[in-house]
Simulated scan of single mutants.
Amino acid sequence: MSRSLRHGAFAATALVFSIAALSACSAGNDAQTLQVRPDNAATAVDSIKIQNLNIITQPDPETEGPAVIAATLFNDGPKREVVEKVTLPGTNAVVELKPAKGKGPVVVPAGGRLIIGGKNNASAVIENGRQAGADGSVQTVAFTLSETGDIELGAAIVPATSFFEKFGPSTVPSAKPTPTPTPSASETGSVASGEPSDGQSGTPSGTETDAAGTADDEAATH
């Protein structure tokens, strides 16, 4: 196990105990007001801290579409760190990482923070959101940083509802339109053919033409 992953494991374990204790205390002191959310993953490795990590899927569990990764990264070090990639180990999911504005790397500035997810922030989009896993489960997310290396921690998979709605996918598939029924062949056949519907031909029959020709010949003979 790498140094980064080992430190991350210890930090995550300590965080679980501290959050559990905080949750127990807050239960009698209006936990909703204190906004204690023990399901939001967090860890610290060297000068990098990752907090509020979640994978946010479509609001309807039956809907296919993209999902997003939401997290806040803090950099307490003297150098900026570039988030080179974000992956979901053990899956085939592809995560597309983009900066908040324009092109270029996704950077955690020295002494600053990087917010991933939400309006006007950097984004990490999973095109096929269901590859991340089912709502309510936990999926490992790996951040690869230019100086610190790999940091892995588990993220809760939640739908884009309630608190998570404003951080969810910007693309929500719309319902497919109902196809307009087309007229049947029996309704359109006579009009489309351009022929009279009473069965009469558009030209005189051959018998009528022959009879007229015979009458003219007789008149010429007399």
Rank of each mutant, 00 (worst) to 15 (best):
S170K: 00
E187V: 13
D135V: 15
A192R: 15
I56V: 05
A185Q: 13
G102Q: 01
G136D: 05
V141Y: 06
V158S: 02
L88C: 05
I69N: 12
V95G: 07
S2D: 04
R3A: 10
V94W: 06
V83P: 04
E208H: 14
K79L: 12
N75I: 01
L15W: 08
A212S: 12
K79V: 10
G129P: 09
E96M: 04
L22E: 01
I19P: 11
C25A: 13
A124E: 01
P61E: 08
D60T: 01
M1K: 12
R80P: 00
N52V: 09
L34M: 03
P59V: 11
T33W: 05
G213S: 14
I115C: 12
A41I: 10
A185W: 10
Q35E: 07
S197R: 09
V16I: 04
G199E: 04
A110M: 07
E208R: 15
F10C: 11
A124R: 03
G189M: 12
T188D: 12
Q139G: 06
G28Q: 02
K119M: 14
S193T: 14
E208M: 05
I19N: 14
I126F: 04
A71T: 05
L97S: 05
S170F: 08
G118T: 02
V191A: 15
G129H: 03
A220V: 13
N29A: 07
S23H: 14
L34D: 13
P183I: 03
A42D: 04
A155V: 02
S174Y: 07
S18W: 11
